[in-house]
């Protein structure tokens, strides 16, 4: 035991290790899927269509879509892995062990979200590497890029964790990523800048939080984005705060965890 007041780091590492082990079992499928998907995007948008596109704000189209594509996969991976990670033990019933262990809610979240975010980072970096096979990309602010990826991964893993706690069925688990997140990311400016959109779509798009994430992430690559960096960071901070708040509430009330 780590003492009654200290953190149960061994408990955290047990769950973290368990989750990574689960990822390792499906290592190739879970890594190849985003790589193949991204490759297809590069072939279609980068090479086929991109060659007929003008530069956007001085950036070749093939390079322009790289940050958006990384973000697209990372959002999906984060939500999918984190929601699945906590939904599975609820579904199989093995959650009993987590609930009966001397683990605080914070420790539980660190373990599950940490593991899911780790995998998202790996996927993000693999796609980043894959992109270099197709286009020339230079990153203006590499450290900021990594920090951005990490914060986004954590935020969306927290969101996924909420989803995994909330879902009562596999159908619900799939529903949100498919019908809400997918359109949001596609319309989030991964393949275009919002200035390319006609009104009223441009104004409507501003309500999509993903715009700010991709714009901020694009700034780390090219030193410029659709919206100011400050707004991007504020949106991410707000998301992080909202997800954390919801999770605290869920644990405090025992929502869907304890009867």
């Amino acid at each position: 035991m780590n003492g009654p007041s200290g953190m149960n780091w061994r408990g955290i590492s047990a769950i973290y290790g368990f989750e990574l082990h689960r990822f390792r079992r499906t290592f190739w499928t879970s890594l190849m899927t985003p790589v193949i998907t991204t490759t297809l995007y590069f072939i279609v948008f980068g090479s086929a269509i991109g060659s007929r596109m003008n530069e956007i704000d001085g950036i070749p189209y093939g390079a322009f879509i790289v940050p958006g594509l990384i973000m697209l996969s990372m959002l999906q991976e984060s939500i999918f892995n984190a929601s699945f990670g906590i939904y599975m033990p609820r579904w199989t019933g093995t959650i009993y062990e987590i609930l009966s262990a001397p683990l605080s809610p914070l420790e539980t979240v660190i373990a599950y979200v940490g593991a899911a975010a780790t995998k998202s980072m790996i996927v993000g970096l693999v796609i980043f590497a894959t992109a270099h096979l197709f286009v020339d990309v230079t990153v203006v602010h590499p450290l900021a890029m990594l920090a951005f990826m990490l914060v986004i991964a954590i935020s969306f893993c927290l969101f996924g964790f909420i989803l995994g706690l909330w879902a009562k069925s596999f159908e619900q688990l799939q529903f949100v990523p498919l019908l809400v997140i997918m359109p949001m990311t596609f319309l989030g400016g991964a393949f275009y800048t919002i200035s390319m959109l006609p009104e009223p779509w441009r104004t409507i798009t501003l309500f999509n939080p993903v715009i700010y994430l991709i714009s901020g992430f694009r700034w780390t690559f090219f030193g410029q984005g659709d919206v100011s960096l400050g707004i991007s960071l504020s949106v991410i901070a707000a998301m992080l705060a909202a997800c954390t708040g919801i999770i605290i509430w869920m644990f405090r009330t025992g929502y869907r965890l304890k009867k």
């Binding site: 408990g11 368990f18 079992r25 093995t94 262990a101």
Partner: peptide, 24 residues
């Protein structure tokens, strides 16, 4: 109820439980 992780090995799952409770 027999709640178990189908793909885990016996020894891994028992070790996991010990770790979960913060024991070395």
């Amino acid at each position: 109820e027999l709640h178990t992780d189908a793909f885990e090995k016996v020894i891994t799952t028992v070790r996991f439980s010990r770790g979960l409770f913060g024991k070395p």
